[in-house]
Amino acid sequence: MCALNAFVVADPNKCIGCKVCEVACAVVHSDVPVKTVGQMTTPIIPRLYLVKTAEVTMPVQCRHCEDAPCANACPVGAITQRDGIIYVDQEACVGCKTCMLACPFGAMEMVPYYRNGERVKQLRLTEETGEGPVLQDAFVASKCDRCIGVEGGPACVANCPKEALRVVRPDELRRTRNLEAALAVLESVKNVIG
């Protein structure tokens, strides 16, 4: 097998900027199951980001690069490839932000780390306050993991009301494009020969 890594991409002509994809992403990645807004005690932390300017509206996310710059840059080896997914091991991440600098798409973000709805603290790092040293809040690298292990595949794709998102499988992409091109040639040849 030499399949290329699949990735999710948005169609800026379909996207209306509703952020349902961001919410869906945060919901499936929450470690405590949540269905309603009121159940949430943590902020919505997505792994794709809506870009909205006068020219373009669409979410941007990880491309799962073949020679992933983030993984190459990580000094502690927290980023690896698993089943065609470039994956961040948040437990191993030290929050150095090198991956953020390395990613050409801005797909990597440093986010507050939550477990069971509670803010995770650093193991040792403290900050001096008026009441003595206090353990610092943990931040970890976070990005699209193509909803690894989520039934029905990427939540953003499944929930977008405008079907503006799709999973691109590069090998299939080439094959379909080739086929389309071949059919187009056939059509024009027919027209010429009559």
């Binding site: 349902v20 919410v23 869906a24 269905k35 309603t36 807004v37 929930n159 009301p161």
Partner: peptide, 13 residues
């Protein structure tokens, strides 16, 4: 009423 986070859950609710 409680607001569902996902469109499909709005219908399920």
């Amino acid at each position: 009423q409680p607001k569902a986070l996902l469109p499909k859950d709005r219908i399920c609710a």
